[in-house]
Simulated scan of single mutants.
Amino acid sequence: MKKIILYSLITSMIVSAFAGIMGLSAQAAPVSVPLEKTVVGYYTSWASAKGYTPLHVPAQKLTHLNYAFAGIDPAANSIALANPQRDLKNFEQLRSLKAANPGLKTLISVGGWDDSVYFSAVAATEESRNSFAESCRAFLVAHGFDGVDLDWEYPVSGGKAGNLSSPGDTGNFTLLLSTIRQKLNEQSLIDGKQYYLTIAGAANPNYLKKIEAGKVAELVDHIFVMTYDMHGPWDSRSDFGAPLYSPSEYSPQYKNSVFEGISAYLNAGIPAGKLVLGIPFYGYLYEGVSENNNGRYSAFSSARAVTYDAVKNNYLNRPGFRSFYHEEAFVPYLYGNAAFLSYEDTRSVGAKAMMARNLGLAGAGIWELSQDTGGELLESVYAGVNGK
């Protein structure tokens, strides 16, 4: 833990250097003092089809639940349900969950990897921005949500093939957020309720160059930093999916880490209190790896994502696999049968949550809840981020 403390001191200096740089505009997010650290959990619409309904969520360990995902109707420039029959049934259960847990805030998350195709178009003009923002306001009121989370993957470039994009996305993203914030603030004046606006952002400096980071931070309640997928099946070598720190050992490919991802935002002047550190409840299994380094940094024949539930039920006690914990990266992994499995456990997610607390971040968050149906990882995140 000495390494965490050292990095915490260094980053605290970075945070202090940027304190007070950005004032709040009239359209800024309302200021509130949370009683506990933020814990955000993404709940996916398809989880209910697998039997993990909203009523299974351990809401007492969450402050915010983001329902993923809604899409965009390009004809109407409005928010749109991805699966109306399933979504409306889930929404009903979310309202029941909130009734039993009054402190829980629910947000509708728009976009994600598969549904970000029309963000560029809806952000492009004042008319389309107003239409989309008004649809968000009406959606929240109609379905009992407390806010909207924009998961635009990604402005300007990147994301899924076929996504619309433009160099103008940089400024238009800010304008879209400003318009939504205005509509939410207007609704607050009508019903006296606080409404939340958040975004999910990539954990790298390149993403921050494509948005007006300081202006965005003023407008949103928090930024969920996707500090995972540091490595994955798109790489040429097996590697850790979310190492807390980059290992000092040699690797034939690029290095990246959770600490570096969060540091990119702090170095860009984003206040620590606006950041939520994202934690994966899944890992990656690489098959056909070399026995060198117990499968680390090896060429592989195939790779795929594996949920924590699957790791626990299908791999931890499988004959031929050995368990390891990388003391620099602060992550566990398995090796055996010519396979390397990078994943998370209660110790590793607790270390990530502790980092969020030590750096003074708003809190931590999870992608995604149904991958840990027993709730043990969530329990560790909650304890770590709140110092319990």
Rank of each mutant, 00 (worst) to 15 (best):
A202G: 15
A202M: 12
A203P: 13
A203D: 13
N204P: 05
N204Y: 09
P205T: 01
N206V: 14
Y207L: 13
L208V: 04
K209R: 14
K209L: 11
K210Q: 12
K210R: 15
I211G: 03
E212Q: 15
E212C: 08
A213K: 08
G214Y: 00
K215Y: 02
K215W: 00
V216N: 08
V216K: 10
V216G: 06
L219Y: 05
V220D: 00
D221F: 06
D221W: 06
D221C: 07
F224P: 01
M226V: 01
T227M: 08
T227V: 01
Y228E: 05
M230W: 05
H231F: 12
H231T: 05
H231N: 15
G232F: 12
G232I: 11
P233L: 10
S238T: 07
D239G: 15
D239I: 00
F240Q: 01
G241S: 12
A242W: 11
L244T: 01
L244N: 05
Y245P: 00
P247C: 11
P247G: 06
P247L: 13
E249A: 15
E249C: 13
Y250F: 15
S251D: 03
Q253N: 10
Q253H: 14
Y254P: 02
K255W: 02
K255A: 06
N256T: 08
S257R: 10
V258T: 06
V258H: 03
F259M: 07
F259N: 06
F259D: 05
F259R: 05
F259W: 05
E260P: 03
E260N: 12
E260M: 12
G261A: 09
I262P: 00
A264E: 03
Y265F: 13
Y265T: 03
L266G: 01
L266W: 01
N267P: 01
G269T: 04
I270F: 05
P271D: 03
P271C: 08
P271T: 01
K274G: 02
K274T: 00
K274R: 11
L275S: 03
L277K: 04
G278D: 06
I279G: 06
I279W: 04
P280C: 09
F281R: 09
F281G: 04
G283L: 12
Y284R: 13
E287K: 15
G288D: 05
G288A: 11
V289A: 08
E291R: 13
N292G: 01
N294V: 05
N294Q: 14
R296V: 03
R296I: 05
Y297G: 03
Y297C: 11
S298M: 13
A299S: 14
F300W: 10
F300R: 12
S301D: 08
S302H: 09
S302A: 15
S302E: 12
A305C: 09
V306N: 06
V306D: 02
V306H: 07
V306F: 13
T307Q: 08
Y308K: 08
Y308D: 03
D309V: 08
A310C: 05
A310Q: 08
V311S: 09
V311G: 10
K312I: 02
K312F: 09
K312V: 04
K312T: 01
K312Y: 09
N314L: 14
Y315G: 00
Y315L: 12
N317E: 11
N317R: 13
N317L: 13
R318L: 15
R318M: 14
R318A: 15
P319S: 14
G320S: 07
G320R: 13
G320H: 11
F321V: 04
R322N: 03
R322H: 06
R322D: 02
S323M: 11
